[in-house]
Design a protein around this nucleic acid. Structure first.
Length: 380
DNA sequence: CAACCGTGGCT
DNA sequence: TAGCCAAGGTT
């Protein structure tokens, strides 16, 4: 049998936990969580569906941001069955502004999958859960432990931070290999008596006390367990590699007027902002004039001949992995019905029925302003 | 494995 | 200001 140069995660986890007071740590954490947890709507009951929705919304998203979306979503779609019967357009409209829109599409697909394959009930089996679109290792662990009381780990960013400090683990937490180590550690630590309180306690501690920049160690219920605190090194952890610089792209978009209607298209699934509506847009070429770029893109990509009348606004929008310098032009329609696969002429007052990304939502808002000022002008 | 996929708030 | 950060998943 061949032996690896580096220890397996399971062996390393066991070595790291040598001398750690597992039982005492569990008690202190769970006790703290029971008394100090925030009153959040998804903690009101253990409905697996609501836990699922909340966990998906909370992926890479702050509690305060997700909260109003969650309330609207479960009000409109209270059950898996209700969601499974929904139109994707309605789901995306409820998700508008929350970002990472594949989450919404996957949640809808997942709900339909649960109706067809699992009789409308989210399975409590790890391997079956993992087959559902949009449910990865963390979300599966969260649903299993919180909704079904199963003693499995749920490793999110909070848990990586808390455990890296607690156990003084110095590996780069962004590497997939390190993630496996922390999953082993969390699996060994999880409290069999109350996996829900333990896993949520770990995350709540990370959110409220063991925060990224200025951890509140003096308020920490498990300070006596913390190796980083003992070493005075809590601010050095977790270790993370540097982020790559993100590229900037010059973009043009156009508001093409044809009577009271403007042209919009639905972005293809799978790409950036997939499934959302947008004004016709495209990349400006190097050394190309902005207005010329607008005319060229409308002609080539959207089959529209227009007269570019002037800039409406500039939008600078930063995504997670790229940045747009977006210049928006108003245009008068000349010819062409529009050739985008999912293009439509929509009256301006009906634009609110469609889901737009934040960057193009600003264009819609600018048009509302235009309408208002035009009406004001007409009244004078 | 590394790149892709949003958004808003904070320092 | 520019960068960092937040209950990740998919390809």
């Amino acid at each position: 049998m061949k032996r690896r140069a580096t220890a397996e995660p399971a062996d390393r986890a066991a070595a790291i936990l040598q001398g750690f007071d597992v039982a005492g740590f569990r008690c202190r954490l769970v006790d703290w969580f029971r008394h100090q947890q925030r009153d959040l709507p998804w903690r009101r009951d253990r409905d697996p569906y609501k836990i699922w929705v909340s966990e998906v919304m909370l992926q890479q998203t702050r509690v305060e941001t997700a909260l109003p979306y969650f309330l609207r979503f479960v009000e409109r779609f209270p059950t898996v069955e209700a969601l499974a019967a929904a139109e994707e357009a309605d789901v995306l409209k409820l998700w508008e502004g929350l970002g990472y829109y594949s989450r919404a599409r996957n949640l809808l697909r997942g709900a339909r999958q649960v109706m067809e394959e699992f009789g409308g009930v989210l399975p409590d089996d790890p391997e079956e859960l993992a087959r559902i679109k949009g449910i990865g290792p963390y979300t599966a662990g969260a649903i299993l432990s919180i909704a079904y009381g199963r003693p499995v780990p749920a490793v999110d960013g909070n848990v990586l931070r808390v455990l890296s400090r607690l156990l003084l683990v110095e590996e780069d937490v962004q590497k997939p290999g390190t993630r496996r180590l922390f999953t082993q550690l969390a699996a060994a630590l999880v409290c069999p008596d109350d996996p829900s309180a333990f896993n949520q306690g770990l995350m709540e501690l990370g959110a409220l006390v063991c925060t990224p920049r200025a951890p509140k160690c003096l308020l920490c219920p498990v300070r006596e367990d913390c190796r980083a605190y003992a070493a005075g090194r809590e601010r050095e952890l977790p270790a993370k590699g540097k982020r790559k610089a993100i590229p900037t792209v010059d973009m043009v978009a156009a508001v093409v007027w044809r009577g009271a209607a403007v042209y919009v298209y639905r972005r293809p699934e799978g790409g950036l902002l997939g499934g959302l509506w947008a004004f016709p847009d495209g990349e400006r070429r190097a050394d190309e004039a902005w207005e010329a770029a607008a005319a060229r893109i409308l002609r080539e990509r959207y089959g529209l001949a227009v007269a570019v009348s002037g800039p409406l606004l500039d939008v600078v929008h930063t995504f997670s992995h790229c940045r747009w310098n977006l210049r928006v032009f108003q245009c008068a329609w000349v010819a062409g019905d529009g050739a985008a696969p999912d293009g439509r002429w929509v009256e301006v007052d009906k634009l609110d029925e469609l889901a737009f990304p934040a960057s193009h939502k600003k264009i819609v808002a600018a048009l509302d302003g235009e309408t208002v000022s035009a009406r004001r002008g007409a009244l004078r």
